[in-house]
Simulated assay, not measured.
Amino acid sequence: MAADFWVSSHYERWIVDRATLHQARAEDIQFAENPEYLDYLPIYFANLITKLGKKLQFRQRIIATATVFFRRFYLKNSYCETDPFTVIAACCYLAAKAEESPVHIKVIVAESKSLFSQESYGSRPFSSDNGKIAEMEFYLVDDLECDLVVFHPYRTLLSLCKKEASDSSSSEEGETEDLGVGIGPDDGPRYWGTGDGQLEFTPAALQTAWSIINDSYRSQLCLLYPPHLIAIAAIYLTFILHPPTRPDSSPVAAEHISADGARRRSSRQAHNPPRAAATPKKPQDPIAFLADLNVSLPAVAAIAQEIISMYTLWDRYSEDSMCGVPGVGTPSGEGADADGGPDGGHITPSFLSAVLLRMREARVMDASPIAPSVSRPVAVNKRLERAQAAG
């Protein structure tokens, strides 16, 4: 297990460019009725992993690791040739073991079946066969090339930001004591440049930065940028939401301001010799702190813009099926536009589940030897076909 991010498999094999991401979705784009719907799938699947992780009482680090495993798997596979719900269950099962918090496979299957069978997800059937998840786990480890060590931004956040001693809500349960490997303050000027000390965050601000990092897993940022840059971008966005307070004029301990503005000494100081005035604490300059870090600020700005764009997209996504337009999620019907999408409503889980189903059906028809006007042969991964047979 690499203790240095820059020589780890995470950095050497799993930081990709946008062209690779686009190529990974080439087959899905071919069978999608509207390619714009694919933009909502990262949010949809990340929410599913989070919900399943909470049902299994996972710590946030395990949920984040499962999400990264899911993203990496679909760098080499397409949604339309696999069953993403089986992959989600396998990712949670594998992530729990990779983070040394294993859960029995029967519990994974039972909770997955309970979650994925809900009406909001199209009441899709989920197999109760434990062997399907166990088989998918082998395919998952194979596609991950046995690279199960994942670096997360949480360690960098807690390394750069000072946490108050009385604050117990600034991070998820157990995360402060269980940071795992990562980039920390002891890694020297190679990473942090001339950054002096730590930033002082209020509990609310630190929780905001933590939540922004959680939200970043609903995008593809974990595949595009190193985790410490994502953490710094979260800090930058937190400064916008929670501007640092500037202290007023230096306090005068032994003086009061009278109504007319004149200063007068207190009766206590009239009988006691004045003490040496405490040197007022110099306020931190967050802009200078970030500028002194030995990181690419344009990259940090790009990540921040990506997160803002993700929030804009997320505004149109709703877990409440009642927010969608009636008829959305069916191949045709009232409330759906010409290509089957919502007409002015929110994107809902049931609608995206129907989109995935139609993509798989279109791919099967395209791969069929009797299908008319087949544009090109589609390579079929037999191993994954067996794993998705239960779906």
Rank of each mutant, 00 (worst) to 15 (best):
M1P: 15
V7C: 12
S9P: 05
H10F: 13
D17M: 07
E33H: 15
E36K: 04
D39P: 01
P42D: 15
L48C: 14
I49Y: 04
K51T: 06
K51E: 00
K54F: 04
V68N: 08
V68R: 00
V68S: 11
F70K: 03
F73N: 11
C80I: 04
A89L: 05
A89W: 03
C92Y: 01
Y93D: 05
A95Y: 04
V107W: 02
S112P: 00
K113A: 12
S114Q: 10
L115V: 07
R124E: 09
S127E: 12
G131E: 15
I133T: 14
M136D: 02
E137Q: 07
E137S: 05
D142S: 13
L144Y: 03
D147V: 06
T156P: 06
L158C: 00
S159V: 00
E164L: 09
S170V: 03
E173H: 09
P189E: 14
Y191L: 09
Y191M: 08
D196G: 00
D196E: 14
L199C: 03
F201L: 04
T202L: 04
A205T: 04
T208K: 03
A209P: 01
I213L: 00
S216Y: 03
L223D: 02
L229G: 02
I235T: 04
I235R: 00
L237C: 07
F239T: 03
R246F: 05
V252M: 13
A253H: 09
G261C: 07
R264L: 07
Q269V: 10
A270Q: 09
A270R: 09
P274G: 13
A276N: 06
Q284V: 06
P298W: 10
A299H: 15
S309E: 05
S309G: 11
Y311R: 12
T312E: 15
W314K: 14
S318D: 14
D320S: 11
P331S: 14
G333V: 01
L352I: 08
S353V: 06
S353A: 10
P369S: 08
I370S: 02
A371L: 06
S373P: 01
S375F: 02
A379N: 07
N381D: 15
N381T: 07
L384I: 11
R386S: 12
